[in-house]
Every structure is written in structure tokens, then in C-alpha cells.
Amino acid sequence: MDELNVQKLYVRFFDVDMKNNEAIPIGEINIKEKNIQQEIIPVVFITNDVFKNLDKNKIEDLAKHIKQEIEFIYPKISDKKIKEIQFDCDWTISTRSKYFYLLNIVEKQNPTLLVSATIRLHQIKDKTKTGIPPIKKGVLMYYATSNPLDFKEENSILENKLAENYCKEIQNYPIALDIALPIYSWAIIENQVGEKRLLNGIRNDMLKDTSIYQPIKPNFYLVKKDHYLHGNYIYEDFTIKTEEVTTTQLEQASTFLKNKIINQELNTIFYQLDSSNLSHYSIQNLKNISK
């Protein structure tokens, strides 16, 4: 991170979900040490269920509770002042009005803070239907271009052609955008009856042993014997599909977006920070992609 001169870390602090008819923080981050170098930006993921179940009065309370929870966690990770809070929600037509209301309330309650939000590809493409969040800055999540459960040959993390199709009119999007590019990987495991599950952090180079993994076609393997993979028991005859994004794909994505997005300041955020993910990309390449 030093070599890359990373200035900001967007850290997921907690999710908000419904439990016993209440919106509560779940899965809070477990902080082991303070970060003294980067600016930490708290990210809060909120499920659509929250907005389906809460009325506007309760959303005002939720805005306060979220801020309080962030203020409780923040000093454990940073000595700096909070400058920005980011919300992450896969909002839809049915939840947008309450989600946007929450964003408005948080901004009103915290006029000195920058309130930003993640924006998914379908929300860019269908902006007239899904609406435009009332924020000054968004982050385009330039990944998750299809459903990994489809188990097709395309890469569900990023297919540039599909992503570009979503962003044909991104130059007209009325909010300044940063871009988030995927450096994560995973394997989709299919069992003998066609059920699937995900294993994070798997890449092709982990499946080189042909006595265990028989290549069927690019990125697909047939398991030849029972074994553990990343702590998960994998049986013979399971099929594994790996998904990862190459440097060339990231460069193509970055070039496309930089030509399209017209805001003066365009930051690149890589999803997600992990020593294993980082080891697959050279510092120089990541620097070039961020340029």
C-alpha cells in the first residue's frame, strides 16, 4: 500500500439488516489495530429488507443509529476525523424512495460529512427507473456483470463487453463518479446434482495439479479425487469453475471508463484489499490502471 501511495481505505464497518422487526447492525468489523496512514472511510451495507419494513420516522432513527455506531467503531481504527461515510445498497424501484430519504437525512444530520454511495451497473443503465441517489459522489461498482450461478463460460465477475453495454450513457450520469474495479477471485463449485456454492480466493494457479483437477475447458475443472480446498471438502466428480480478472481486463475497463466519465477527479478503488489478491497484480500495473 505504501508503494501504491494508497490514500484511502473504504472499510466495511457493518451491515444493517432486519431482525425481530428492527433494523440492527450485523457483522461488525473486528478491528485488531489502528491504521495511522490512510484515511478510513466507513462503508455501511444496508439490505433492501430494511427499507421494505421501515417507515420514514424509523428511517430517521436509523440514520442516527448508523452514525452513532460508526462513531463508536471509528476511533478504534483511526485517529483521524471522519470526512466521508459511504452507503452500499442494491436499491430497486420499490426501495429507492426510502433509501434516498435515508441518504438525505444522513446528509442533513451531518452537514460537514461527505455522504457517498455505491452504484451498481444496472442502476447506471436504468437510471430513469431506479433513480439517482441524492448524493454528491458515487462509486461505480464495475463488476458483477452476471450471475455466478449461471455457470456459463463467461466470467460473472467482469466481462468488459457486458459492463460497457451497461455504461453506454454514463457520461450523462449527473453525479461525480469514482470507479471500483475487481481484483477478487473465487471458484464456483458444482456438485453432482447441479447445486453450486462459492469459495472465495481461488484462482486457476491453485488448480494446477492435474492428478486432482482435470481441465475440461478454460477455467473449468473436473475433480478427480476427494480433497480439501481452502478448508472445504471437495468430492470427486464435482466441477469447479474459477473466476478472476486479468490485468489486461482491468486496463481495458479503466481506459473505457476514463474516456467516458467526465468528472474532473476520478479515483480508482480496487475491490478488495487482501494480500492474496494483491499478490496477483504488480504494483506498477495497479498504478497504471489508477492513472
Binding site: 500500500m1 501504491l4 501511495n5 494508497v6 490514500q7 484511502k8 481505505l9 473504504y10 472499510v11 466495511r12 457493518f14 451491515d15 439488516d17 450485523i26 457483522g27 468489523i29 473486528n30 490512510q38 462503508v43 451495507f45 439490505t47 455466478p148 450461478l149 469514482d178 471500483a180 462459492l198 472465495n200 476514463k258 474532473q264 477527479e265 476520478l266 479515483n267 480508482t268 478503488i269 480496487f270 475491490y271 478488495q272 484489499l273 495497479l286 498504478k287 489508477s290 492513472k291
Partner: peptide, 20 residues
């Protein structure tokens, strides 16, 4: 201004989405 690099850090995944 265009050189800023940042990262997302998800320490744990609260597994909300069935896919996760």
C-alpha cells in the same frame, strides 16, 4: 488528481446474500 488509488476492505462477509 487522477492518480488516487484506494481499496475496499471487507474483513468479514456478513453472509446476507445467498450466493455468499
Amino acid at each position: 488528481k487522477q492518480h488516487a488509488t484506494s481499496f475496499y476492505f471487507w474483513e468479514t462477509m456478513y453472509e446476507i446474500s445467498p450466493i455468499e
